[in-house]
Nucleic acid binder design. Structure first.
Lengths: 367, 367
DNA sequence: CTTTCCTGGTTACTCAGGATGACCAGCGCA
DNA sequence: TGCGCTGGTCATCCTGAGTAACCAGGAAAG
């Protein structure tokens, strides 16, 4: 018999499923979830582990009594005494009606920037998209989410007015990135969309356009409403003697819906010669659609986009648009969150950025 | 993008060999052996681990400097001062000729995804752009960087062939995200660009196109070269009896340069009726330029884009393109890096993804 | 109401990595 | 000289994880 070396620990032969079970157990202890676990597919994404492995891990936890089995196709519930130790977390949730790439206050570029900066500051970021059509459904979904998750603060991106006020009313910890309803008293980091709308209308009018339109999704985003207000205000101020026809054209936010509106506009009796388009994606869709229909840009229609996209400068015609440097906003947001994490409150002073106009060949004098 | 709960530790994916190395390391620290380790077969008995695993563990310890290699069939000796071991850091540098958003293997969307996943695995990520025009200048810059920085691994994104081979030759720790030169023996996570090129040409030919072209930047990216090879191969195989005219058109990577090439193509004697375009940005520029010139798409020219962009589906015509899910690649990359951090080496087996074709109305039969 | 999406449950298949056992050449030593 | 030990190598088997489909039930959106 060989002598045995006693000073040694044998390497632990532990299956990856068991390790995963440990990870989930720690998550439960830290209070990452309340009441019930996320779905298996969610866990598999979050933990970067395949679903069969997640299932084996869950089976272990059920067997040891940490979890209940799924009840009638419900999520698995966490057994009482799960140690829900409320620890100060640094979890930040971005809340929006749209995919992150489409949120106007911060273009696609800036969003990964935001994530990076916040993660440097040791915040963990998540994105929650709330795309239900009815307000009630949105509120139900969010209420369920609030009940099951503990977060430091929500960051509201281009939410519609009703939901923004509902959240503020419920006392959900939040700050607003993008435009903020004036009545909502939350820390906010805005673009001055009102000024942009006014400026855009002024640009079109000063180039001689007399039939202009603002194409905007009908989602009641507060920034969109502000742009709209600025747009009509500029028209009202200018149109003292002139005969100016300014329309606000709402579409349903889908590319197809936008094209339908565009076609209707152009087929109408007095088609506009100048367009302001909200959202970079929509501007691209509109440009390609018009060119594809043989409508010259800017020959028959000039286009200004309210928001930025870094492809705009590469195209011919270059899309005239408004642009700004998001880094200042990101820095402020990071500081506000750090303050909130440290002190429990954040200043509600709004921070405003005035985008600058980037001229492009898509804007010219009318035909 | 699905939200992810960051308040969690991910389960650690550590191989049993690495665990065994840990056990041996602890044994050394506790003075279980003096001067030299027991033989492999002894260790295998003592630790209750098979000998191949013991050997892998020993290789890890030799690599990290805890052990000397076996001297002339002697037992492995324990290095003096076994206390201070240079531990591998977890710093990862992304190295590319272009801005991250433009790197084709992973779209802008996927890149923030990659950062997030790697940072959750406790890697720190940085991006290093190497845009010098001359190869010598690139090498100088990188050599200076290597001399001053210790990193776990470089991740090469769409580097040109020369630089990729130079790095491999210098023994820089690296893996390739995107296409990899066949002679370069590095872990790589590829799209199968060759297959894409072949498939794209096949699609155009099978639709009846007989004059086709591949528009590609002249930067000698390995993926581009592979696409080109696949493209011409498909043409060669198909064109047995048929008369097919296939051109490779290189542009300088700028939108203006692309437009010049397009105009020259269309003004030529036998303009192509089908185009394959590399890079999503280039495809957008080409589409808008053609439509703006009154060239009907797909009426006069069909377009397929080799890469993906999520705006393609929203446009009319929809841009036919090749698409894939980058998450699998990100997962593999993360695992390879984790393995590298734990064991000091990563497998050099290439991982290949076959993008699937997303049909679109920009592709139709000619004329 | 209908439809859509998401849940848990289940399948078949691939593949990496560890276990096993055998073999080799070199070396020290009885 | 022959034995027993060392590290080095190989072929083979098998477990466990990954992947990608499916399915039915049920909740919720519209």
């Amino acid at each position: 018999m060989p002598p045995s070396d006693h000073a040694l620990d044998l390497p632990e032969r532990i299956s990856f499923s068991a390790l995963t079970a440990q990870a989930i157990r720690r998550g439960i202890d830290r209070g990452a979830w309340a009441g019930a676990l996320p779905s298996e597919r969610r866990l598999s994404e979050v933990l970067q582990v395949s679903r069969p492995t997640i299932r084996r891990a869950l089976a272990i936890l059920v067997r040891e009594g940490t979890l209940d089995g799924p009840r009638a196709r419900q999520l698995r519930t966490i057994r009482a005494g799960g140690g829900a130790r409320p620890s100060l977390n640094r979890r930040v949730i971005f809340l929006s009606h749209e995919q992150p790439e489409q949120c106007p206050p911060i273009g696609s570029l800036a969003f990964s920037e935001i994530r990076t900066v916040l993660e440097r500051l040791r915040f963990t970021t998540e994105f929650l998209v709330c795309q239900e059509r009815s307000l009630a459904a949105q509120q139900r979904k969010l209420a369920a989410y609030f009940a099951r998750n503990r977060v430091l603060s929500y960051v509201l991106l281009s939410l519609n007015q009703e939901l923004q006020m509902w959240l503020a009313g419920r006392g959900v910890p939040a700050m607003v990135l993008g435009s903020c309803h004036p009545a909502v008293r939350l820390p906010s980091f805005d673009l001055d969309n009102h000024a942009v709308g006014r400026s855009a209308a002024g640009l079109l009018l000063s180039r001689g356009h007399r039939r202009i339109a603002f194409l905007v999704p009908d989602s009641n985003g507060i920034g969109d409403l502000a742009t709209e207000a600025g747009f009509t205000e500029a028209v009202r101020l200018h149109a003292a003697g002139d005969e100016v026809q300014a329309r606000i054209v709402r579409h349903d936010g889908t590319p197809a819906g936008l094209r339908v509106r565009l076609d209707a506009l152009l087929a109408g009796p007095a088609p506009p010669t100048g367009l302001l388009v909200a959202k970079p994606r929509a501007a691209l869709v509109a440009l390609v659609h018009l060119l594809g229909r043989g409508v010259a840009v800017p020959g028959r229609v000039s286009i200004i986009c309210r928001d930025q996209d870094d492809v705009f400068g590469d195209l011919r015609p270059q899309l005239a648009h408004f642009s700004y440097d998001g880094r200042g906003i990101v820095r402020r947001l990071g500081r506000a969150l750090a303050q909130l994490a440290a002190t429990g409150v954040a200043v509600a002073r709004p921070y405003r950025v005035f985008p600058r106009f980037v001229s492009g060949t898509s804007l010219a004098r009318p035909g």
